[in-house]
């Protein structure tokens, strides 16, 4: 089979990739977070320039985003070369060079030890719970009384969230994270579970919801800080954009 790609189709595919590479701490895509400063597609070569909210953003999370992006781009059948460039960052030279050479994080930063995957899992766990929390919040807006609701099955929730698009989207995102944790999402599986798939028992429900609340709040507060910092660091001319800037003269 031969697939012909137009330039337009290629760019569209790249944006799709950028929508699915996440900032691990904030569990939002680098596209949504406006971390993409520049995108160039020339024939089969792709170049993406990334920017972050501060010069000091943690190098290990920066590496994860760059590595995930590189992997995702190279997985597209028509891409022959991908160049990821991080700008305005204290470790940009090391990271840019390391990613270009397909080095691991510990090869780039010789003082680092341990396993980057374990860091990733910590954040996938937070993402799992905060996505679960968003589904629950949405159910509440659909009239479900949380204090008297016994967490049911996927089928039950799928039925409630069938029609409204935002609810379905939230459920899909939760399902994606459930799959990462290999938690069953069949119609008869319990929908509110921990990362090992254990259903939350009624007596633990209160504590569980307190923890969900805190995990989600932390993530949202961080996202708020990061987005605000990015917006003052890289002011845009978009309509409705009105963050204060100071004249330094």
């Amino acid at each position: 089979m031969c697939v012909m790609y137009t330039q337009e189709a290629r760019i569209k595919e790249i944006w799709h990739v950028l929508d699915h590479v996440y900032d691990p701490e904030l569990d939002r895509s680098i596209h949504e977070l406006n971390f993409v400063a520049c995108l160039e597609v020339s024939d089969t070569d792709v170049a993406v320039t990334l920017r972050l909210p501060t010069y000091w953003c943690s190098p290990n999370f920066s590496f994860m985003m760059m590595k995930d992006l590189d992997d995702a781009l190279m997985a597209l059948p028509w891409v022959k070369s991908a160049r990821i460039t991080l700008i305005d960052h204290e470790s940009q030279e090391k990271l840019n060079q390391g990613i270009a050479r397909h080095q691991s994080f510990s090869q780039i930063f010789s003082e680092s030890t341990g396993d980057l995957e374990s860091v990733r899992r910590v954040f996938k766990e937070k993402a799992f719970y905060s996505r679960q929390k968003r589904v629950l919040d949405y159910l509440q807006t659909q009239g479900l009384n949380m204090s008297s609701w016994t967490p049911g099955t996927w089928q039950e929730v799928r039925q409630i969230l069938q029609a409204p698009a935002p609810g379905q989207q939230l459920l899909e995102r939760y399902e994606e994270m459930a799959q990462y944790w290999k938690v069953g999402c069949g119609d008869n599986d319990a929908v509110i579970v921990d990362i090992s798939g254990r259903a939350i028992s009624p007596e633990l429900w209160g504590r569980h919801s307190h923890i969900l609340r805190l995990v989600a709040l932390n993530m949202e507060s961080n996202a708020h800080i990061c987005q605000g910092l990015l917006a003052v660091r890289y002011p845009r001319q978009d309509p409705g954009y009105s963050l204060p800037l100071v004249d330094s003269h």
Partner: peptide
Amino acid sequence: KGPTIKPLNMDAF
């Protein structure tokens, strides 16, 4: 707390 590099197997913050 701020973003540290070492040890890598811990979350930076």
